[in-house]
Design a protein around this nucleic acid. Sequence first.
DNA 1: GCCAACGTTGGC
DNA 2: GCCAACGTTGGC
Length: 158
Amino acid sequence: MAYWLMKSEPDTFSIDDLARRPGKTEPWDGVRNYQARNHMRAMAVGDQVFFYHSSCAEPAIVGTMRVCADAAPDAAQFDPKSPYYDPASKPDAPRWFAVKVRYERTLKKPLTLSALRLHADKLPGFQLLMRGSRLSVLPVSDEHWDYIMNLTRAKDTL
DNA sequence: GCCAACGTTGGC
DNA sequence: GCCAACGTTGGC
């Protein structure tokens, strides 16, 4: 089993939105970056994922979810009315993929980016904290996952 | 709204 | 294949 982090702008899709979905599942669509796509294609059912709120007042890890379906072609790429439409992608050779995720839990208190930065020395190579990093789907090592989960417990946020 | 950093596109 | 121009991300 592997660990990941995925970003979403809460104005577009928040962890509360996920928690309200029927079955608390959702295809993680709209990813339009090759590296992020490759990470999604490397995911397996059962993998755990941090839900991160980006481009908002308080960027933070806000909860966890679990991959519940392997990456499949993202339907939005073929829909001219979708903001995620990609006219260059053809149905016989889809360019963009989406895994499906299931809501797991919301942290009682978000683990903010600024709080995470205080632990940067304990999270060497954690892509979220790396300069210029803006990937919306990124891997988290076992060690970093455990360290961050312990942080949330230490702060009594779970 | 600003801007640094990164990704993509397209002319050559 | 290079690289300038442009677009996007995302923190602040």
